[in-house]
């Protein structure tokens, strides 16, 4: 009962719910520094393996390619903790603001 007045007032106010994903996509506040999908720069990486050593969930995996050792990132295992970004001595890894990463196929969820 104590909330009747409050509820009545809200009849004339803007809706608080964002209609995401059917609308309001641009209204979602995405702050600077959000820890989202990883982006990786192969040219900077020296293959030291620190990212794989400190990754808590085994999302960063060290593999071999034509230029030597390098990590690949399995986003489906990633916790978005940014520990890899923090330890990388060459700043090859950045966590971007992309947060819509759901998918139907795990092979799309690998960042190379």
């Amino acid at each position: 009962m104590a909330m009747l007045l409050e509820v009545f007032k809200h009849l004339f106010k803007k809706r608080a719910t964002l209609m995401y994903p059917f609308g309001d996509r641009e209204k979602i506040p995405v702050p600077e520094g959000l820890r989202g999908k990883i982006s990786f720069n192969r040219d900077l990486c020296i293959g030291c393996g620190l990212c794989a050593r400190f990754c808590p969930s085994g999302a960063a995996e060290l593999v071999e390619d034509e230029k030597g050792k390098r990590p690949i990132f399995h986003i489906d295992r990633c916790l978005f903790c940014a520990q890899c970004e923090e330890v990388c001595p060459r700043k090859a890894i950045t966590l971007t603001k992309t947060f819509e990463i759901a998918g139907f196929d795990r092979s799309n969820l690998v960042v190379k």
Partner: peptide, 9 residues
């Protein structure tokens, strides 16, 4: 796990 990984655990 090592001490750094354990923070996240």
């Amino acid at each position: 796990r090592n001490y750094i990984q354990n923070i996240y655990l």
